[in-house]
Design a protein around this nucleic acid. Structure first.
Length: 254
DNA sequence: ATGGCCAATTTTATTGGA
């Protein structure tokens, strides 16, 4: 089973750059998209009526901003757009689907760059999402959180850690929230398999960053132990173009 | 590495991204 996440930075632009062909070729069992930057009605039927998938969209409350979508070959047991905290429901950042062996969170975590208010919003979002996940775990569920975390966890996860210590995305207070997810039982599946591997999933469009591989690893699969036991591989598809992020796939047994 | 980008809407400027 392959669960792929991709921040497409505008699904309409990505479609113009070959997204539909990539989707058909990659053929993931589940595809979690972030930053679709569109309402479903604005998107080509090549995607919104693609055969072989159920699809769920959670767009933002304003045009051209944020928005997530989840595609599944098998119909989920349940689907919800939010996780019950009103402050975090309007920006189209989450889709939660229940599958036979786990809950899957498709998440576009907020960007904290703009000002203190957005940083506070981002940190509050981490806190509220983790609290919700802990309830599911306490009730005996396994959980997969995937998407754009908008934070690089450790120095190995970005090309220039020293010069970014005071920039949102690598602030200690943001990194500590990733620590907290791990303390509460989540495992960073890529890092667990590849403790020393340097590979990124986002590069700024500026500075020729991608061609020089000056990037950040921002797109993760955090999984609970029962899921980790079934992980075969995690693949960062850094050869796939079409966005400033690249897709990342979690491969599970069966 | 100085400055260099891109998507989408509010469109020939502005906002947001990280």
């Amino acid at each position: 089973m392959k669960i792929t996440t991709w921040n497409v930075n505008g699904i309409r632009a990505a479609i113009n750059k070959g997204f539909i062909d990539w989707f058909a070729e990659a053929s993931p069992d589940v595809l979690c998209l972030q930053e679709v930057k569109a309402y479903k009605e604005q998107v080509s039927e090549d995607l919104t009526q693609v055969s072989g998938y159920h699809q769920f969209w959670n767009s933002a409350d304003r045009p051209g901003y944020s928005g997530v979508a989840t595609f599944t070959k098998t119909k989920p047991i349940e689907m919800t757009a939010g996780f019950g905290v009103e402050a975090y429901t309007g920006e189209g950042r989450t889709i939660i689907t229940k599958h036979p062996r786990f809950y899957l969170f498709n998440v576009y975590f907020p960007n904290g760059q703009r000002d203190q208010g957005r940083l506070d919003y981002k940190l509050g979002f981490y806190e509220a999402l983790l609290a919700y996940c802990e309830e599911l775990i306490a009730a005996g569920n396994e959980v997969v959180i995937t998407g754009d975390f908008n934070t690089a966890h450790r120095e190995i996860d970005l090309a220039n850690p020293k010069s970014n210590e005071k920039n949102s995305g690598f602030l200690p207070i943001e990194r500590e929230w990733i620590d907290r997810f791990l303390e509460r039982g989540f495992i960073d599946a890529f890092r667990a398999l590849y403790p020393d591997k340097v590979q990124y999933s986002w590069w700024t469009y500026r500075f020729g960053a991608r061609s020089r591989n000056v990037g950040w690893r921002l797109d993760y699969h955090l999984v609970t132990k029962g899921v980790m036991d079934r992980v075969k591989d995690v693949i960062i598809h850094d050869d796939v173009l079409g966005s400033d992020h690249c897709p990342v796939s979690l491969i599970l047994k069966d």
